[in-house]
Design a protein around this nucleic acid. Sequence first.
DNA 1: TAAAACTAGTGGTCTAGACAACTATATCTT
DNA 2: AAGATATAGTTGTCTAGACCACTAGTTTTA
Lengths: 241, 241
Amino acid sequence: MIDKQSPIPIYYQIEEYLKKMIETGKFAVNQVIPSERELSGTFQVSRMTIRQAVSDLVNEGYLYRRKGKGTFVAEQKIEQPLQGLTSFTEDMIKRGMTPSTRVLHFDKKKASVSIAKQLGISEQELVYEIKRIRLADDIPMALEMSYIPVKLVPNLTETIVQDSFYKYIEDTLQLKIEDAVQALEASIVLPEDAKRLDMKPGAAVLLIHRHTYLTSGKALEWVKSVYRADRYKFLINMKRS
Amino acid sequence: MIDKQSPIPIYYQIEEYLKKMIETGKFAVNQVIPSERELSGTFQVSRMTIRQAVSDLVNEGYLYRRKGKGTFVAEQKIEQPLQGLTSFTEDMIKRGMTPSTRVLHFDKKKASVSIAKQLGISEQELVYEIKRIRLADDIPMALEMSYIPVKLVPNLTETIVQDSFYKYIEDTLQLKIEDAVQALEASIVLPEDAKRLDMKPGAAVLLIHRHTYLTSGKALEWVKSVYRADRYKFLINMKRS
DNA sequence: TAAAACTAGTGGTCTAGACAACTATATCTT
DNA sequence: AAGATATAGTTGTCTAGACCACTAGTTTTA
């Protein structure tokens, strides 16, 4: 069953053995597996070696322990992408829809007080102001207003925005996006947005504000989005380590 | 520094010590930390005990090992995924408000088709149905409807729900919450909810549906929440690899 | 009969070593 | 000077125990 002379560590061989028993159903879900002492006897190795194998499988989610009771087979879970946030484009593809974008407005202007504050830059510094409409299967889903410091992305064009902004940032400019903070809230659609989104006045919308930061700590963009609530749900998966 | 007489395991005390050194920058990023033998001598404990502490921190992403070289401080990592799992109570405290809860309804009943499906249990199995109103500074913030399989938490009482459900689950029942999936969407408040939340008809609300899973893979609860949009924003921080 | 005590079995923690595999440096040899 | 060799230090693996806390029965006691 296991080879003590092998250069492959014993604990690893035992791990593979246990995994196999789990995957082939020899150890049933939520049923107790042999105790550490029993396995220790079976394989003629120290209990600590068994523990290392079992601990690894607990960490990987194959098993769980109950003090005083035993070690049990965990139910297998669908491996969901841990990613908390995805871009609109990826998100829609995942939902089986075809995303597209229409740039409504692309301009360079001096930052207002509030925008300068959001981006952590000085007033009067130049920013791009970009307004886009996001479509899925050609149905309007969201309006997005983005502000980006010109200093960070000197040669931004409407074409780049239309195509793939993040790809340009990371591949061409070699800037690394470090993190993002999003705030979500519900609201009633504004009259001027209702037209663009083809919604009735008074309908619910999901407002998402996002700050995106580079590794350097500088804010890359500030985005205000308005999503049609009847067509869009926001999903978050969270793992506890 | 560490207390060998304490009921708190030594390896855990050493983990806390190492974490503190990392978080305060006493151990710099990508720099080597004292070797296992050195720590073993410093704390006068066996090397295996040190290894358990270090292994845990490696698993949690605080450290990484290089055979023959040493153990190093990893670059700071995601800390936030947990944020989504924080309870309403913690969330409100973080915002400087005083949270409270009123249980409107506490009942044991057979699972309906849809609830059974959401919880991954068979129909006719018993579930708790709990309706609560969440207040912050005595102002209604949200309505919550929870469904919990009776099988998993046989002795749940209204008092436990009122006090601290998660604490009871983890401390008393020794069940470990593994992850949660949340879906957020915007909507217009329902007439009956408007009254409870003291809102005008037609106002916007944030709907949050949450599935919480145990380490065993079983669904612990399914929660439908209705938040007052004018008082509640949902924040997400995410780090990108 | 009901409560208390006991007991066997489990995982949780810890020890004081051992040797292997690997890295980096210093030293010796050619 | 260049390559081979030793050496000291590191993590990786493993042992053969030990005692603790907890669980779930069984047995004893009041």
